[in-house]
Simulated scan of single mutants.
Amino acid sequence: MEKPVLHLENADIYQRDNLVISKVNLTINKGEFYYLIGKTGSGKSSLMKTLYGDIRLQSGTGTIVDFDLKDLKDREIPYLRRKIGIVFQDFKLLNDTTVFGNLEFVLKATGWKNKVEIKQKINEVLEKVGMQSQYYKMAFELSGGEQQRVAIARALLNDPELILADEPTGNLDPKTSLEVMHLLNEIHKSGKTILMATHDYQLIVKFKHNTLKVEAGELFEVSQQTTV
């Protein structure tokens, strides 16, 4: 049996000193796609931040891509983030840098040195997201949808075992949201594991996947048949 990509057991999720979700039990295996839904302020983002090491796991146990979240050392966080891809609502691109430069920055920061290999890798991920012809543009020149495509390309750079997408369509119009969702689905079909926090119920209805809901301080799975 392959080890799960993500496993939480009786994990308490905090936002500063407030307990926002208690006793989380969750297992996500390789190749699965889960939505994470819940009202604003319910703790979705705090759970995501706990998974990528921004918030400490204080009680319960948790492993993500073979890292122990409870005993995670500060120096290990960059290595954890190389094994997961993170896509944010607000893209977090370097605005005054080209598309190519944004991706090159991440590769160099994660230890890539060979210029030819860097260029090949950047071309490969840009091709996957349909942005290869825009590699020379500055990030601020791109539309929201294009910026999110670049952000997804960035998340794919180190061939992550898990992609955490935190409201990836939150700043996009409905048409662009659909395009980004199609792209995430294609990436999922290629074998990637995805956990996506969203409040866009139209996407959940259109693209059916496992759905987790945070409500009243608890996390539980909802079936596709029930109204979310």
Rank of each mutant, 00 (worst) to 15 (best):
I37A: 01
W112A: 10
T176C: 02
N123D: 15
K83R: 15
H209N: 15
V106M: 12
A151M: 03
G85R: 10
L107K: 13
K108D: 02
L94R: 10
I13C: 05
I28N: 03
V24W: 02
M131A: 08
N210Q: 14
N102G: 06
L69K: 00
T211K: 00
Q15D: 14
G41I: 13
F100H: 13
D17C: 05
N95H: 14
I152Y: 00
E186T: 10
I118W: 08
I163G: 00
T227L: 15
Y14M: 07
E221S: 14
V87T: 08
I13A: 02
G191D: 11
M196F: 10
L19C: 07
S59D: 08
M181G: 01
D159A: 09
D74P: 08
R82A: 08
L57M: 12
K192D: 06
T97K: 13
H7N: 11
N123R: 11
Q147H: 04
T97F: 11
D74G: 04
K119E: 12
L51W: 09
V222S: 04
Y35V: 01
H188P: 09
D166L: 05
Q202A: 14
S42V: 02
R82F: 02
K192S: 10
D54Q: 15
S22R: 12
M1K: 14
S59W: 02
L172I: 05
E117C: 05
A216Y: 08
K49S: 04
S45A: 01
L203V: 01
E32F: 11
T27S: 14
I86M: 07
P4H: 07
F140L: 09
Q89F: 04
T40M: 13
D12M: 01
A139N: 13
F88N: 13
A139G: 13
I118P: 07
L164D: 01
E161P: 06
E117R: 10
V129K: 07
V222T: 12
T63Y: 11
K206D: 01
L51G: 06
Y14A: 03
Y14V: 08
I37Y: 00
V222D: 07
G191Q: 06
T211I: 04
T169K: 03
L183C: 12
L142R: 03
T193E: 11
A216M: 08
I28G: 04
A139V: 12
T27G: 10
I13D: 03
T50V: 02
T169L: 05
I13G: 03
V205H: 15
V222C: 10
V99M: 06
A165Y: 00
V125H: 04
L26T: 09
K128I: 09
N185E: 12
Q225R: 13
K121C: 02
G53V: 14
Q202L: 09
G62H: 01
T110G: 03
T40G: 10
L94S: 11
D200A: 07
F67T: 12
N10F: 06
Y52K: 13
K208T: 11
T198M: 00
D166Y: 05
D17P: 00
K70F: 15
F140Y: 15
L126I: 04
